[in-house]
Nucleic acid binder design. Structure first.
Length: 465
RNA sequence: GCGCUCAUCGUCUAGCCUGGUCUAGGACACCGCCCUUUCACGGCGGCGACGGGGGUUCGAAUCCCCCUGGGCGUACCA
């Protein structure tokens, strides 16, 4: 295909959700891979439901994921003149007609048809009417061919056919004069030169309705590729009741964008046994050939695993920057404490999200260590006094404060006192953190520094029970 | 209801097009062992699937048909 042109066309009636993000990602990857063009179009023909906040939220989410577009965003609400022109064209060519049926009449007919077991389809009352005054309220319908079939070769699903008699005469202009989705999407995709429409599975049924419109308008019909839906654990379409579905909610929960991208791409696409992909690798390896046909269940645990992976292997200074935000949310001033990068290094292998990391980092920045009751009762007992004092002595005797020197200081202390690590190590941990679960004592002391570490141990000595 | 569509471990998937190399491979989760200064990381191992029934064939996860189940659509929403 020469010069691939794809698009992502969200309607701004909410946040960018997981499913939309994956569709956007697939489009982006394909455009990058083929050195094509990725167009972003905002589908806001439903003026009542579209909001600027939603537009901003979607843009922000795409930016977070690193999905930059080459053209756009274009707004359908600013292209009404074009749609109007095309509707007039179809009208004058007899390919569309005015329909004066009221919504109530239509609804009644639909209900009756359903009750009698017939297809709920427009009955064509106004199809061949003439001489109606255009002053009367009316919609415009597309005159859909009623014979034969419409088919297309979906790049993911293969050949799909529909009998034309199944198709309705779609309303393309509402009574209030605004155009409807199935029409504008055709006009836009055609005039924007989109030659591959890569979108969600839920649009398969729209495709045979749109193809005749391309033809009626004299446009070339693009290729289509429909990516399977994302379902929740109960196999129902993914929705809020399955948990967070907004992409940005995951950022707030401490997820890294590369984890989200990696997770999303593997839901429906695979490359042999590989699980971990950077964006660059994806651009190189992504292909519609390896996109599956069946719907997939959103699995938050695998996303979490990927997130942990990227936290573990991520660039320390970047993680530190991101961590700051989450620390702030916990009311911690990241600048008033030990070196943030050192903090990150000590926590990287222990946190699955940045939120978790921030929680785990809190103790580094605490003025006063709050002891967990159980930990205090078990490890901060009066008989530890001598050992803790010995630890302080040896720590203060160090020339520098690296993990290695701390380890040596502990070794010397054990040598001198004859104590095994288990006799005082956990107590030091509780003195430093207030809990029994943390990075190693050596690491923590190296991060906190001698002065702060000893201050905490002294404080613990005064709190022995 | 009708139309479209999908169907391999609990989940994401490889394999299917070009039947035999599949006692069906990998990953997440789960369980066990090892490592270990706690918590983690890591290593090793285990559990676990071709939805059912008919064909075709020497041989079917792979090809065909039926059934069942799931998803989507059926708007003056997109």
């Amino acid at each position: 295909m020469s010069n691939l042109r794809v698009r992502f066309a969200p309607s701004p009636t909410g946040y960018l959700h997981i499913g939309g993000a994956r569709t956007a990602l697939f489009n982006y990857l394909l455009a990058q891979k083929e050195k094509g063009t990725f167009v972003l179009r905002i589908e806001d023909t439903d003026v009542a439901r579209s909001t600027q906040e939603s537009v901003d939220a979607i843009l922000q989410a795409m930016d977070w994921l690193g999905l930059s577009c080459d053209e756009g965003p274009f707004y359908q609400s600013q292209r009404f003149d074009l749609y109007q022109e095309k509707i007039e064209q179809l009208l004058s060519e007899g390919k569309a007609y005015r329909c004066f049926c009221t919504q109530e009449e239509l609804e009644e007919k639909r209900n009756r048809a359903q009750a009698e077991g017939r297809k709920p389809k427009y009955d064509g009352t106004c199809r061949d009417k003439t001489g109606q005054s255009t002053d009367q309220p009316h919609v415009v319908r597309f005159r859909f061919p009623q014979d034969g079939e419409t088919s297309f070769n979906d790049r993911i699903k293969g050949v799909i056919r529909f009998a034309n008699e199944e198709m309705d005469d779609l309303i393309i202009r509402r009574t209030d004069g605004t155009p409807t989705y199935n029409f504008v999407v055709v006009v836009d995709d055609a005039t924007m030169g989109i030659n591959l429409v890569l979108r969600g599975d839920d649009h398969v049924n729209n495709t045979p309705r749109q193809i005749p419109m391309y033809e009626a308008l004299g446009f070339e019909v693009p290729e289509f590729a429909h990516v399977p839906m994302i379902l929740g654990a109960d196999k129902a379409r993914l929705s809020k009741r399955h948990g967070a579905t907004s992409v940005m909610a995951y950022r707030d929960m401490g997820y890294l964008p590369e984890a989200m991208v990696n997770y999303l791409v593997r839901l429906g696409w695979s490359f042999g046994d590989e699980e971990i992909f950077s964006m660059d690798e994806l651009i190189e390896k992504f292909s519609l050939d390896n996109v599956g046909k069946s719907a997939g269940v959103f699995n938050p645990e695998k996303l979490l695993w990927l997130n942990a992976h990227y936290i573990k292997t991520g660039d320390v200074s970047r993680i530190a920057d991101l961590l700051k935000v989450h620390l702030q949310k916990l009311g911690v001033d990241a600048d008033a404490g030990p070196d943030l990068e050192a903090v990150v290094r000590s926590l990287q292998e222990r946190a699955q999200t940045l939120v978790e990391m921030a929680e785990g980092a809190k103790f580094y920045f605490a003025d006063h260590v709050d002891y967990e009751e159980k930990a205090q009762n078990k490890f901060l007992t009066a008989d530890k006094k001598d050992a803790l004092e010995a630890v302080i002595r040896h720590l203060e005797g160090m020339n520098d404060c690296t993990e290695e020197s701390v380890e040596k200081a502990f070794a010397a202390m054990m040598e001198e006192t004859g104590l095994k690590f288990g006799k005082f190590g956990p107590s030091v941990r509780v003195a430093l953190t207030g809990t029994t679960s943390s990075p190693s004592n050596y690491e923590m002391i190296a991060v906190l520094g001698v002065e702060e570490s000893c201050r905490r141990i002294r404080a613990a000595i005064t709190a022995l029970v």
